[in-house]
Amino acid sequence: MNKSILIILIVISVICTIISSYIDSNTMHYIFKPLSTILVILLPVLYAKNGLKRYKNIILIGLVFCLIGDIFLMFDAYFIFGLASFLIGHVFFIYAFASIRGFSWNVKTLMPLVLVAGLIFFKLKDHLGDLLIPVILYVTCIVLMAWQAINVYVWKKEYGFLLIAIGASLFLVSDSVLSYRKFIGDFTIAQFLVSSTYWTAITLISLSTIYINKKTSAAI
């Protein structure tokens, strides 16, 4: 299958997922939500560079945990399991990004992320109840993921690393909107924002396994 065709299929599946939420079609939602992530997983499976085997495998594990999280989050009763699945997925993404050149301690790129995450958490904290500690852990983890992704691009401004940086940043946006919707209140375009940023995020991270420069691949 041509890579462009697979990306088109991802877009179509994501659109169907978004539509299913607005028309309250559970059957459609149960089919297309996991299917969208499965299609994203196929990108590194089918097209990742051979020289990126270690990096690709770590990313794949992270994506599989995203798929598990997607399935859990389809049911309100399993929200905490979905949160845990995505938390584990983020840990693998952090490991993957750090595998490129080691864990980066660039504080300049961390401060804006901490500021944004802090503002979001301040808005949410009075609505979290028993989930306060899990959410703190999750926010910390996703900030670390975005931080390491951005640092890789700051280190070397190549296309594959740009995909990582944008993808991880969009993940932060998606989870912020999802948290607001879950704990404070829904709004008309919330589902569109969550879905579009989330699947764009994991698609870009998947594509990084294809577009990271060959000269860099020897290190990972």
Rank of each mutant, 00 (worst) to 15 (best):
Q148L: 06
T140P: 04
I31W: 01
V152W: 00
L67A: 02
F97C: 07
T17M: 07
I8M: 10
L162R: 13
F72W: 13
G129W: 05
I100F: 10
L110Q: 08
S195A: 09
L204W: 02
N151E: 03
L124S: 04
L9D: 03
S85A: 15
Y159F: 13
K56T: 15
L172Q: 11
I150W: 04
I120K: 04
C141Y: 06
D76P: 01
Y153D: 06
W199F: 15
I184T: 10
H127G: 00
F86K: 10
I19N: 01
Y30G: 01
K108Y: 08
K123Q: 09
Y198F: 15
S217I: 07
G167T: 04
H29C: 10
F72C: 10
Y159I: 09
D186I: 12
L132W: 00
F187L: 10
I59A: 10
L119W: 05
A84M: 13
I12C: 05
Y138I: 14
S104K: 09
I18F: 14
L144A: 11
F72N: 04
L60P: 01
S176R: 15
I184V: 15
T209C: 15
G129K: 08
V114M: 13
L193C: 09
I8R: 11
K33C: 03
I189D: 14
F93Y: 14
L132F: 06
Y198M: 14
V14A: 01
F92G: 05
R101V: 09
I164H: 02
Y159R: 14
G160S: 13
I164G: 01
L170V: 14
F92M: 13
D126K: 07
F103H: 08
I23T: 08
S217H: 02
L67I: 01
A96M: 03
R54V: 14
V11W: 00
F122V: 07
I31F: 07
A219P: 00
E158V: 05
S20T: 04
G51T: 11
I61G: 00
G102A: 13
I142T: 13
V91T: 01
G102Y: 12
N50T: 13
S21K: 11
L178G: 06
L144H: 04
L128Q: 06
I19V: 12
K182V: 03
C141H: 09
Y153F: 10
A117H: 10
W147E: 07
W147T: 08
G160V: 12
I150C: 08
V107S: 11
F32Q: 06
V114F: 11
R54S: 14
I150Y: 03
P44A: 06
S36Y: 10
S179F: 03
G69W: 07
D70I: 06
I12E: 02
N50Y: 08
C66D: 05
M145L: 14
V194A: 08
I166A: 06
Y153W: 11
S176A: 15
A146Y: 05
I120D: 04
W155P: 00
I210S: 04
V194L: 09
V11D: 00
P34A: 03
V173R: 15
R54A: 12
P34G: 03
A77C: 00
S99Y: 12
G89Y: 13
L67H: 04
S179R: 00
Y138H: 14
L193W: 01
V114P: 12
N50M: 07
I100H: 08
I10R: 09
A98E: 06
L73T: 05
S195L: 12
H90D: 05
D175N: 15
F81H: 07
